[in-house]
């Protein structure tokens, strides 16, 4: 990785039943995708409270991905439908308060879509790289000399 290029931190919440397996498939089939993404496995996209994204931004994530099962495929029948409604509103709320909604990416990826996973992560990383660091990251200026 080049030192001079901004390396965004990306947190990805992946549903255990689909996109996590999709990421696994991307790995086992040796598909390349950027190392900026940190994966967190969750039981369902419906488990990912939009506040998780807010907290991730606060703690320094530049982008957050929530990847769940395709509509109709939810292991728990309806989790991703709820997630869809929540994130539709959270997107607009972020946009309205001045944080680019592109930083919060929600999509559906099945266990067989390893290629799509790699593609989505690559595209998203580049988009966030272009946006730059998240503006609502917690700063602790008083501590910089200590932690330096």
């Amino acid at each position: 990785m080049s030192e001079n290029v901004f390396q965004p931190k990306i947190v990805a919440f992946l549903c255990n039943w689909c996109s996590y397996a999709g990421a696994d498939l991307a790995g086992t089939s040796r598909t390349q995708y950027p190392p900026n993404v940190r994966i967190i496995r969750v039981p369902c996209s419906g488990r990912v409270d939009p506040l998780f994204a807010l907290k991730a931004f606060q703690d320094g994530a530049d982008g957050v991905m929530v990847l769940g099962c395709h509509p109709g495929d939810c292991h728990y029948q309806q989790g991703n439908y709820f997630a869809q409604r929540r994130y539709a509103l959270m997107h607009r709320l972020l946009e309205f308060t001045g944080v680019e909604s592109e930083r919060l990416f929600v999509d559906w990826i099945s266990a067989s879509e390893g290629k799509k996973f790699a593609q989505v992560v690559t595209d998203f990383t580049e988009r966030v790289r272009a946006l730059g660091p998240v503006p609502i990251k917690r700063q602790t200026p008083a501590l910089q000399e200590v932690s330096a």
Binding site: L93, T97, R138
Partner: peptide, 25 residues
Amino acid sequence: HWTSIALELPEKYFFHVMRAFHLAG
């Protein structure tokens, strides 16, 4: 621990956006 007790923009942003979102609908 969702957010710090500090009084900086990120904490206030979190609080107000969180509250607005919890009142969505």
